[in-house]
Design a protein around this nucleic acid. Structure first.
Lengths: 171, 171
DNA sequence: GTCTATAGTGGGATAGAC
DNA sequence: GTCTATCCCACTATAGAC
C-alpha cells in the first residue's frame, strides 16, 4: 500500500471503481477522488483516459489467460468443457471488467505485444481448426453477454445450455 | 412525407440518425435538428428519450421477426441454416440498430405485448429443446457482435465459422 | 405544438503557478 | 507531482409564454 508507484495506484483505483460501480463510474474525477487528489493531476501519469482503460483491459486479458491455462492444466481430458467453465466463471466474477474487455474494438496499440494471442491460445490449442475455434468463442461470449444483459428469461437455468453447447462442439 | 404524425416523424428521424451515425448521435437535440424544431418540443410527443429508443427497438424486433419468418418459409429443409443466415444478414445490414436491440436489458414494459416472443418463435420452432435453442442464439449473437466489434482478425473469413457452428447445432 | 430560457449534471482535458 | 482555475463540451429535462 505504502509506496506503490502513483501510476499503479491510479490503475488500482480505476479497477475498483469499475468493478464495484460499473463503467459509468469510471471517470477521471472519480479516480482522483479515490486517491485524494484532483483530476488534472492524473494527466501527469497517463496521457488520457483511454490509456487508463487500456491498462484495465490488459489486466483482464492476462487474468483470463491465467484462468484458461489453469483450467486445461486441471482437466486435460475435456479441455473444451474446462475452458468454457473457466471462461464463464471469470466473466461472471468480473462483469464490468469483462464488458470493458469485450465491448468495441480492442485498443491493440496500447496493449502489450502478444497478450491478445496469449489469451486466445488455450482455445486454439484445444480446437485446432480456426473456424471451429471462432465458433466456440462466439458461443461462449454470446452466452456470457446475454446472461449479463439479462436477455434470457429470468428463471432460465443456463447450465444445460452451456452443457449442450460445449458437448456439441466437443464432438 | 407530408403530414405523417409528428410522433412518427420523430421516430423516423431517430432511426436515420442511429443507423447512419450510431448511438452517440442519437440525442434529443440531433433528432429535433433533423425536424427543424427545438429539442424541448419533442417532449410534447414522447415522455423521455427511452420511449423513443423503445420504438426503435420495437421496429428492429419486428423486422428481425419478419426476416426469420421469411427465411424458414423460403428454405424449410434446413431451417437452422436459413435462420442463421437471415439473422446475420439483418444484423450486419443494421449494425447500430442491432446493438441498440441487444445491448443491455430490454425495456420490456415499453414494448408491444408478445413482440419478444414473436421474434424468438422461429428459432423455438426449429429447435424445440429450449436449452439447445438458447445455445444456438448465443452462438449467433456472439458471432454477430464479435464481428461488429472487430474482434476477429481483420482478414478472417467468417463464413466457415458460421457454417461449422450451424452444422454442429443441426445434428 | 412550438418557442425561449434555463436548470442541473456531468464529462475530458489544458494552462500555468507552486 | 500537485494544485487552482478554467475551457469547452454535451446531455436530459422542465417551466412558462405564445
Amino acid at each position: 500500500m505504502a509506496d506503490r508507484p502513483r501510476s499503479r495506484q491510479i490503475v488500482d483505483a480505476a479497477r475498483e471503481l469499475l468493478e464495484t460501480e460499473g463503467a459509468d463510474a469510471l471517470t477521471m474525477r472519480r479516480i482522483a477522488d479515490r486517491l485524494g487528489i484532483r483530476a488534472p493531476s492524473l494527466y501527469k501519469h497517463f496521457p488520457d483516459k483511454q490509456a487508463v482503460e487500456a491498462e484495465l483491459i490488459a489486466q483482464g486479458l492476462a487474468e483470463m489467460a491465467d484462468a484458461q491455462e489453469a483450467a486445461v492444466a486441471a482437466e486435460p481430458g475435456q479441455p473444451l468443457v474446462a475452458l468454457g467453465a473457466a471462461y464463464r466463471e471469470y466473466a461472471l466474477a468480473h462483469p464490468h471488467l469483462y464488458r470493458l474487455m469485450t465491448a468495441g474494438p480492442l485498443p491493440r496499440h496500447l496493449l502489450p505485444d502478444g497478450l491478445e494471442a496469449r489469451a486466445a491460445l488455450p482455445l486454439v490449442k484445444a480446437v485446432p481448426d480456426e473456424h471451429r475455434a471462432r465458433a466456440v468463442w462466439a458461443f461462449a461470449h454470446g452466452m456470457v453477454i446475454l446472461e449479463l444483459d439479462g436477455r434470457f428469461p429470468p428463471d432460465a437455468d443456463l447450465d444445460p445450455a452451456w452443457r449442450v453447447g460445449m458437448a456439441t462442439f466437443s464432438t
